[in-house]
Design a protein around this nucleic acid. Structure first.
Lengths: 138, 138
DNA sequence: CTTGAACCTCTAGTTACTGAAGATATTACA
DNA sequence: TGTAATATCTTCAGTAACTAGAGGTTCAAG
């Protein structure tokens, strides 16, 4: 059995976050000692690892809840899990695309300014003030 | 003079968001009609455009506040603005890098699963449960 | 002068945590 | 066994950047 601190060290999830996960139902309520402290079994550890890994990959808590549901009904179709992962993948790709276009414009703005004058003549500020200075819409 | 709705249409910033910006001090308090409704001048419109553009580029409200400070003291060095923009650029690049590595792993996970079996044997779920199946740390 | 759209304030909710206060439990060591 | 240090407990509030709704008032057009 693990204390909440040991669980935390084992997974890299903060103690407060573990309690939060319990509160919102992502983790089930663990046993308690007589003094009311939480004690976790290996299943809880594995579940938390799952959650951590999925969070690291950018899944929302909601998506993770769906995935847990699936895990717990092994007869269900695998397609749902694949769909969720796919959706996440598409989302990541969308975000990359958007960030790339931001990067481009930011790089252009930064490049246009030597950083030497006063802010009155700063190209960075001018570019931010005036959308017309953008290469294209965003 | 613009009403808050006209300002909203002109900038693409929602009415509620405009009021929120005022509350947190990003926009200064505008004049009011006798009936207590907000009326904005052109300066306010331009300032909101600036904020919108910077937000679209991913600047935090805090960074935007610094930029506004700079705009309002034209004798200050332009370097500060360039620094903020540069920091933002670096941050965008960091995020892109991280998302790329997520994309890679997600693609691998999704690819490993046909979506046809039951969730019991689902590779997506297995990969999320077991960090060992990852190609590298993240 | 009426009517309907736009506006007002205030409160609460969103996501996914994080931190602090003040009290209690456990553990290690003497 | 006693005590001190560390860990844990609950509860509440705060973070970023909005968004939405209730219930009431004002404006502008016909």
């Amino acid at each position: 059995m693990y204390s909440i601190g040991q669980l935390s060290k084992n997974t890299g999830v903060k103690v407060t976050t573990i309690r939060y996960y319990e509160e919102i139902g992502v983790l089930t309520e663990p046993e308690r000692t007589q003094g009311h402290q939480r004690r976790y079994d290996v299943a809880a550890l594995e579940r938390l690892r799952f959650v951590k890994h999925a969070r690291d990959l950018g899944f929302t808590i909601q998506a993770i809840e769906s995935l847990i549901q699936l895990q717990e009904s092994p007869e269900k179709s695998c397609k749902e899990a694949t769909d969720i992962a796919n959706e996440q993948l598409l989302d990541v790709r969308r975000r990359i695309k958007q960030l790339r276009s931001l990067e481009k414009e930011l790089a252009r703005i930064v490049k246009g300014c030597s950083g030497e004058g006063t802010s009155q003549s700063c190209y960075v500020l001018a570019a931010l003030a005036d959308h017309e200075l953008c290469e294209k819409d965003h």
